[in-house]
Design a binder for these strands. Structure first.
Lengths: 226, 226
DNA sequence: TCCCGATGTTAGCGAGCGTTAACCGAGATG
DNA sequence: CATCTCGGTTAACGCTCGCTAACATCGGGA
């Protein structure tokens, strides 16, 4: 993932991509998606992916702009062609993660028929994310404070909405419990479900992802409904 | 919160600097009861307490040596009279936390009569620590990677021993389960129990500590025994 | 009482790093 | 084909910050 091409400057661009032979046709359908635009989008995504990994490994402060560039095959200040600064990279990661988590929760709750299935789906979806995007989860947990006030507020808002979906479902399952308690329980469940991204970097043989998934789902359900 | 030393948390980390890896349950520095020695120990403890709060708030990289000095009423390089460097402060915090957690677990397990009481006591002790030393828990979770290899290894060793106590108790309660699963469960329980230090800084009215304590203990037990 | 060592102080060095400036080559535009 | 845009390059600025040096002060053992 962090491998860089051999020739940064004098690359022969003819063999890089299976590009269309004649760009003379220009971009008909893409409103703003010319070939260049696509490459730009790809590079931006690559920077984000590499940044998530690096931030998770060494922490936001332990990664330099130069590192980010090198990880995607460009060097240093080229990153500024895609992001306003280092903080903007972090903000994009965190906002993307919060939005993905929230979107998934809303989709999943809409599709479920009853509260029990909703909760099971919420748990499954969260486990999916935690096991699939462990780096992002880690960064989300650790580096939220590094954001400037504006971006931090935005992310907090998305997170709050995510929590509220859980609280809604829980309050339908357990109307006897106060919302404050359910909120504490939801946060505790997040801590439980996010445990593997934290403990995964501790050496030692762990069960396969499939087994972990089952364990976490069972534990989350039992803890929330206890 | 950053200046008042009087805190309900009575964690007095023993000396960590010297090479001697004594049991360190009690401060050996108090042997020299001279006025100066006591003041030095106090200042060292004050620096550690302030550092834990500041590291939790802004992250290890976001706190300067100058900040640490200012927080205890001295300025800048005076900190070097008590610690070899910024990293040594973090190391002292993390090693102190791990050792306190481990010592408590061993004491608690020794006193319990049967595995069920052992697990309940382990959970209660961990909740005590998480609610009482939230700052330290946060730093422990986030900044372990900032340590140099030696100190990180030491802390990991302490943490590993702590986990093994949990796994031991769990395997006596559920001999049918593989150790690998029990280890995953223990880590998940830690994530659950450590959730309040993470979510506490999110605004919003939460239940009192007593109520949170009960909720977390119930959830941890249910998740582990499910 | 005298001197040593421990604990402060301020000044300043040196490295790292985020960011900007100036320039360059090629794809899109007309 | 002339030109403009844009994503890339290298050089360099300026700031922050960990850490060291040099000096002051004072408690406490001889």
């Amino acid at each position: 993932m962090a491998s860089s091409p051999a020739a940064p400057t004098a690359t022969a661009p003819a063999s890089v991509e299976p590009t269309a032979t004649a760009p003379t046709t220009v971009a008909p359908a893409s409103a703003s998606l010319t070939e260049r635009g696509r490459q730009k989008a790809d590079r931006r995504a690559a920077i984000l992916a590499a940044a998530a990994t690096l931030f998770a490994e060494r922490g936001y402060a332990g990664v330099t702009i130069e590192d980010l560039g090198t990880a995607v095959g460009v060097s240093g200040p080229a990153v500024y062609r895609h992001f306003a600064g280092k903080a903007a990279v972090l903000a994009a990661i965190l906002e993307g993660a919060s939005r993905a988590l929230l979107d998934g929760a809303e989709r999943v709750v809409d599709e479920a028929s009853d509260p029990e299935h909703s909760l099971r789906a919420l748990i499954a979806h969260h486990v999916d994310f935690a096991l699939g995007d462990a780096d992002v989860i880690l960064v989300q947990d650790r580096e939220l404070e590094q954001l400037d006030a504006g971006a931090r507020h935005d992310v907090r808002l998305l997170q709050r909405r995510y929590v509220e979906h859980w609280v809604d479902v829980l309050s339908r399952l357990r109307p006897d419990r106060a919302e404050a308690e359910l909120r504490v329980r939801a946060h505790a469940a997040f801590g439980l479900l996010n445990s593997t991204p934290h403990s995964a970097r501790i050496p030692g043989r762990r069960p396969a992802d499939g087994a972990v998934r089952g364990i976490l789902e069972e534990m989350a359900w039992a803890s929330l409904m206890s």
